[in-house]
Design a binder for these strands. Structure first.
Lengths: 187, 187
DNA sequence: AATTAATCTAAACGATAGGTTAGAAATAAT
DNA sequence: ATTATTTCTAACCTATCGTTTAGATTAATT
């Protein structure tokens, strides 16, 4: 009996994700989302419940997109070198034409305070934990060098990755490369 | 003839700066500022013109506060070790009780987009340039190690400092220490 | 063709944003 | 004590925020 939906949810979420990625949660208005997603406010609320619901789905969508890069890291067998490649891959991933958008997860962590929506905060910390555990695995896998405290190195690289995500929106390509090269110099 | 102002501009700016530092520019409302600064909107606009004008003065106020830490770095004579001490000093500086507020300049860079108020953007890039040049000076001053490319190392430490400022709001004290120690391992 | 149940458009909702203004209160000079 | 000039209070302004709703539109079922 019903009328057919004129849009695909997965398609419009990808548009929403792009807007949130570029502008952040607070700086993105529902009116902007209507325009970019190509559907009406009514439809957005019918499909996603609220702006926060839409954002949560956008984060999921972002993670799925990034998973391809993370999978490559997972499959790598050269230890630390694989992590270094992941750093470079991330910059490529987050770059659109000349503009670099950073990481949606990191951008959100920078934007939100500790009293934000718990579901959103959980999504952020889940992602951080996942990346850290992959880093740890690669560090322990590395046979070239004897590392006394793998947990410490995992923290180091995790914070370095977070820093790179933030810095990628501000600094030049050259500066970011200098950063990455030196981060992996001492390992 | 006139009535006396019941508040001191420098005093209320410090209150405003604290609020912006904790919550960011967009997330801070004029109503919140009224309350925290202890004066009316009328007085705020009479003294500072606009929310952006108030923010600009807050950034100046922040820089002056941080200058004490930067001055210590400037006076240091042990090269890279002085920069490392600055990293630790910054964490202490930005910590209030248990909560870490990061760096107001970095927080703002993370929050704003490239099309933001030019005066504010200029204030941010001026500060970044200043820190970079102090780092460069300390790197060149360091006699312990032969550094082939001081400019590259300056970029490295500048981006690392930016990353630390962002990360300080998210990660634990221990993780931040692991980060700093490893940043300076390879130099 | 009529019915039914969903989607869609578009207007409106209350709340709050940054910013303004009229008038009362206060102070120094005349 | 009156006047002149500034500060202050408090109400108000317009615009926009996220969200909701009424009514027209559409399409599958009877």
């Amino acid at each position: 009996m019903p009328r057919k939906k004129s849009y695909n949810e997965d398609e419009v979420i990808e548009k929403a994700m792009e807007v949130f990625w570029k502008n952040g949660f607070e700086m993105t208005s529902m009116q902007q989302l209507e325009k970019e997603m190509g559907i009406n406010k009514f439809s957005i609320y019918a499909s996603f419940g609220s702006k926060e619901g839409l954002f949560l789905r956008s984060i999921q969508c972002y993670k799925e997109k990034l998973q391809k890069v993370v999978e490559k890291l997972r499959r790598s067998t050269d230890g630390i070198e694989g992590i270094k490649a992941y750093f470079y891959d991330f910059i490529t991933f987050s770059k659109e034409h000349e503009m670099v958008k950073g990481c949606l997860v990191t951008n959100t962590a920078n934007e939100l305070r500790a009293d934000a929506n718990p579901e959103i905060l959980a999504a952020l910390s889940d992602f951080t934990s996942e990346i850290r555990s992959v880093f740890l695995e690669k560090i322990q896998q590395d046979s070239n060098l004897k590392i006394d405290d793998p947990e410490e190195k995992a923290d180091y690289l995790l914070v370095a990755m977070f820093g790179l995500s933030s810095a990628s929106r501000v600094f030049t390509q050259k500066q970011l490369h200098h950063y990455i090269e030196n981060i992996f110099n001492n390992l």
